[in-house]
Amino acid sequence: MTTDKEHTVAFPAHTQSLCPYCLKKLSATRVEKKAGVFLVKECPEHGPMETIIWRGEPDMKTWTRGKTPAGPEIHSRAVEKGCPFDCGLCPGHRQRTCTALLEITWRCNLHCPVCFADSGDAVPDPGLDRIRAWYEEIRQCTGGGCNIQLSGGEPTVRDDLPEIIAMGKEMGFGFIQVNTNGLRLAQEGDFAGRLKQAGLDSVFLQFDGVDDQVHLALRGRKLQAIKERAIANCRSHNLGVVLVPTLVPGVNDHQIGDIIRFGLENCPQVRGVHFQPVSYFGRYPKPPGDADRITLPQVIQGLEDQTGIKAAHFRPPG
């Protein structure tokens, strides 16, 4: 039993994880070592393994805001096999939905080495009726009070994207954002206007750096001028833009400050920067090494070192 006071300053070392090879559920421990905090686990079949999860200041123990559990009211799944095998969500979940993602296509017009979503032309896009049913399900599960992100694939490859946005707004969703690489926003001057007219609130723009060297390394293509044109077109139609860099060690972690400065130069159209350190989904010949990861405190340190914004101003999630 922890007291209210304790859980703002400490957390248990014990947690659970999965085996990367057989997905068996494993006991895991957060272990503090000289180099940082590691997640340590051992599969009876595949042996011991450890991964860096926290490197440097602020101290992991301070990075928590005590809060009461706030799970969803409606559970579409019962607890049967245990976390994370009953997602849907189950009664064991402690947070309601803040943002619901809809993957409205698997197609993409940019084939990146770093990508969350598989993209392929073989799978047909879901029709508008199907998407209406998805919105309806989200509304039923969450009471409607959540933000929507339309994602993919690359959602802007759909010519009916304005209809999809308008449908969500009509169904009562207050905030709809499109997650995009910006290619179509840059190439078709009035596309931003059509999305705005449909009710789009915000563009979640993939933005990995401020020069083509970074774009070439991560996306295999020169994209800086395209990103800038996409932002200019959003400005013409008053669409809010959030810059979203995927941070990869040695590729763009030196541009954290430049990305912030670029964002500020384009403020207020650019509403903020949302960093996403690289994570490893998909097939890998060997496990990613600790040098392949940027942990949260390293992002905060990078911000302090490269912009002068003090680390103390950043807060853990509420």
């Binding site: 403020c267 509403r271 350190p277």
Partner: peptide, 25 residues
Amino acid sequence: FSISCMVFQDVWNLDLERVRDCCIH
């Protein structure tokens, strides 16, 4: 102007206590 960060989890650094607190679905 907002500055924010989200560290996603993969099968190597997966911490199931964190998963239960996830609000992006």
